Computed example of a mutant assay.
Amino acid sequence: MRRAIRFSLPVSVLLLVGVGAAPALADPPPAPSSGTARTELAALAVASPHSMDGYSRDAFDTWSTQADGCTTRQDVLARDGDGVQEGSDGCQPTSGSWYSAYDGTTVTVVAQATIDHMVPLAEAWRSGADDWSADQRKAFGNDLKDPQLLIASESSNSSKSDSGPSDWKPANHDFWCTYAEDYTHVKSIWKLTTTDDEKSALTSMLDTCTN
């Protein structure tokens, strides 16, 4: 069962609640179908993980400033939250609620609505990002075009850490299908490699899809 987790407020609602409401931002592309994900997964190159030498989250320049003047994190909070209100800077949410699909919980404290990278930065590094340019890594760390950034509760984000699907799976089994589709799609788009264990784990989760 797929559960929608991305929200944007319609213009009519924004007019009613006033300028303090977060602007509606474009949703990221939906996850591909399970059939498309299986095709993408089959096409991923299988390779041994690269060395973590030189890895740093700073290499991905996460939460950089977007064209609207807000940070990537602020834009994701506005995009994926429900009833989001912003402060005087027009960027930082002050209230709202955020659904964490990993564990099926709802977060109502802004500071506890963490943003997770679907494909962890460390996993990207060991599957090809170590050879990227600084601009490529920045684009990956702040990717709003693909299903790479999503809301996660603090506990689920901490539980996942830098793990891929061969070592970690969402506590919310209803999200396994979407998780596998999104994870596979991001790896496919960014031409990252996979391992036999990861491929097996993703295939198993794709088997839970109903479409």
Rank of each mutant, 00 (worst) to 15 (best):
R3H: 05
R3P: 00
A4Q: 13
R6I: 08
R6Y: 09
L9R: 14
L14Y: 02
L15D: 13
L16W: 08
G18Q: 03
A21S: 15
A22L: 02
A24W: 02
A24E: 13
L25Q: 11
L25E: 12
A26F: 00
P30Y: 08
G35E: 14
R38W: 03
A42L: 09
A43H: 07
L44N: 09
M52G: 13
R57D: 05
F60T: 02
S64H: 08
T65Y: 04
C70T: 07
T71E: 03
V76L: 05
D80N: 05
D82K: 08
E86S: 11
S88C: 00
Q92A: 14
T94S: 10
W98T: 06
Y99T: 07
Q112H: 14
T114I: 01
T114M: 07
M118S: 10
M118I: 13
E123L: 15
A124K: 07
W125S: 03
R126W: 09
S127R: 15
D130E: 07
W132K: 09
S133L: 00
K138P: 04
A139K: 06
G141E: 01
L144W: 00
L144V: 03
L149N: 06
L149E: 04
A152Q: 02
A152K: 02
S153K: 09
N157T: 01
S158A: 13
S159W: 01
D162W: 02
D162R: 00
G164E: 08
P165R: 03
P165T: 03
P165N: 05
D167E: 11
W168Y: 12
A171Y: 00
N172Y: 06
D174N: 14
F175Q: 13
Y179E: 10
A180E: 07
W190Y: 12
T193Q: 11
T195R: 08
D196Y: 08
D196P: 05
D196M: 00
K199P: 03
K199F: 01
S200M: 00
L202S: 10
S204G: 10
S204Q: 14
M205N: 07
L206P: 08
D207I: 00
C209G: 05
N211P: 09
